[in-house]
Amino acid sequence: DETGKFLVLALYDYQEKSPREVTMKKGDILTLLNSTNKDWWKVEVNGRQGFVPAAYVKFL
């Protein structure tokens, strides 16, 4: 149950560059965990948590 969690859509592919980031593919649906930083949002994708560039995702 994803109640209270926001979902975001990956607009572009992103390859993680550090262990704190996660890789996503364009079209992936991600669970948004934290968006307090304007540049990097914490998400969960494929069972992994990490950061992606905020400009690469949008709210569903």
Results as ranks from 00 to 15, higher is better:
Gln15Ala: 13
Glu16His: 08
Lys42Val: 14
Thr3Asp: 14
Thr23Ser: 15
Asp13Tyr: 04
Ile29Arg: 06
Glu2Val: 14
Arg20Gln: 14
Leu11Trp: 05
Tyr14Cys: 02
Val52Met: 02
Tyr56Phe: 14
Ala10Arg: 01
Trp41Thr: 04
Pro19Lys: 09
Leu30Ser: 02
Val45Met: 12
Phe59Gln: 11
Tyr12Leu: 11
Gly27Ile: 01
Leu60Ser: 06
Thr31Ile: 15
Arg48Pro: 01
Gly4Thr: 13
Met24Thr: 03
Leu7Met: 11
Lys26Cys: 06
Leu33Arg: 03
Gly27Cys: 06
Arg48Ser: 06
Leu11Gly: 04
Glu21Cys: 06
Ala55Cys: 13
Asp1Arg: 07
Gln49Met: 10
Ile29Leu: 08
Thr36Trp: 10
Lys17Gln: 15
Glu21Pro: 04
Lys5Trp: 09
Val45Leu: 15
Asn37Leu: 09
Val22Leu: 14
Tyr14Arg: 02
Thr31Tyr: 12
Val8Asp: 00
Leu60Tyr: 11
Ala54Tyr: 02
Lys58Ser: 13
Gly50Phe: 04
Glu21Ser: 06
Phe59Leu: 15
Lys17Arg: 12
Pro53Lys: 03
Leu9Trp: 06
Leu32Asp: 00
Lys17Pro: 04
Val43Gln: 00
Thr36Gln: 14
Gln15Arg: 09
Ala55Phe: 09
Leu32His: 02
Tyr12Cys: 12
Ala54Asp: 00
Thr36Phe: 10
Glu44Pro: 00
Arg20Asp: 14
Asp28Pro: 00
Trp40Cys: 06
Thr23Lys: 04
Phe59Asn: 08
Lys25Gly: 05
Pro19Ile: 09
Lys26Pro: 03
Val22Tyr: 02
Lys58Val: 15
Arg48Ala: 07
Leu32Lys: 01
Lys25Ile: 08
Gly27Val: 01
Tyr14Ala: 01
Asp13Trp: 03
Thr31Cys: 10
Glu44Asp: 09
Asp39Tyr: 15
Tyr12Gln: 13
Val52Pro: 00
Ala10Leu: 03
Lys58Tyr: 09
Pro19Glu: 12
Val8Phe: 07
Asp39Thr: 12
Val8Leu: 15
Tyr12Arg: 13
Pro53Ile: 03
Ser35Pro: 07
Asp13Cys: 04
Lys42Phe: 15
Glu44Arg: 07
Tyr12Met: 12
Pro19Cys: 08
Pro53Asn: 02
Ala10Tyr: 03
Ser35Thr: 11
Asn37Phe: 07
Lys42Ser: 07
Gly27Asn: 07
Val45Trp: 06
Val45Lys: 13
Pro53Thr: 02
Thr31Pro: 14
Lys38Gly: 10
Gly4Glu: 13
Glu21Lys: 04
Asp28Gln: 12
Asp1Phe: 10
Lys42Pro: 01
Leu11Phe: 04
Pro19Gln: 09
Thr31Asp: 05
Lys25Thr: 09
Glu21Met: 05
Lys26Arg: 11
Lys5Arg: 13
Asp1Lys: 11
Pro53Leu: 03
Leu32Thr: 02
Ser35Asp: 12
Leu60Trp: 11
Ser18Leu: 08
Gly4Ala: 13
Asp1His: 15
Arg48Thr: 07
Asn46Trp: 05
Asp39Val: 13
Lys42His: 12
Val8Gln: 01
Leu30Tyr: 09
Val57Ser: 00
Leu60Arg: 04
Asn37Cys: 08
Val8Trp: 07
Asn46Val: 05
Tyr14Lys: 01
Trp41Ile: 08
Trp41His: 03
Leu30Glu: 01
Tyr12Glu: 11
Leu32Arg: 01
Val52Lys: 00
Ser35Ala: 15
Lys17His: 08
Pro19Ala: 12
Trp41Asp: 00
Thr31Lys: 13
Asn46Gly: 12
Met24Lys: 00
Thr36Ala: 12
Leu7Glu: 08
Leu11Arg: 07
Thr3Cys: 13
Thr31Asn: 09
Ile29Glu: 04
Tyr14Val: 01
Asn34Leu: 08
Lys17Phe: 05
Thr23Trp: 04
Asn37Gln: 09
Val57Pro: 00
Tyr56Val: 06
Pro19Gly: 09
Thr36Arg: 10
Asp1Thr: 14
Tyr56His: 08
Phe51His: 05
Val52Tyr: 01
Leu30Ala: 09
Thr23Ala: 07
Leu11Lys: 08
Ser18Ile: 04
Glu2Met: 13
Trp40His: 03
Phe6His: 14
Lys58Met: 15
Lys58Pro: 01
Lys26Ser: 07
Asn34Gly: 07
Gly47Glu: 06
Val52Ala: 03
Tyr56Thr: 08
Val57Phe: 05
Met24Gln: 01
Gln15Val: 15
Pro19Asp: 14
Leu30Cys: 10
Ala54Thr: 06
Ser35Ile: 10
Val57Asn: 00
Tyr12Pro: 00
Gly27Met: 03
Thr3Ile: 14
Asp13Gln: 03
Tyr56Glu: 03
Lys42Tyr: 15
Lys42Trp: 15
Asp1Glu: 13
Phe51Pro: 00
Asp28His: 04
Val45Ala: 13
Gly27Pro: 00
Glu16Val: 05
Val43Arg: 00
Val45Cys: 10
Lys38Leu: 08
Thr3Pro: 13
Lys38Pro: 15
Asn46Tyr: 08
Leu11Tyr: 04
Val57Arg: 00
Lys42Met: 15
Lys58Leu: 11
Met24Ala: 02
Leu11Gln: 07
Leu33Ser: 02
Phe6Asn: 12
Glu2Phe: 05
Gly50Met: 04
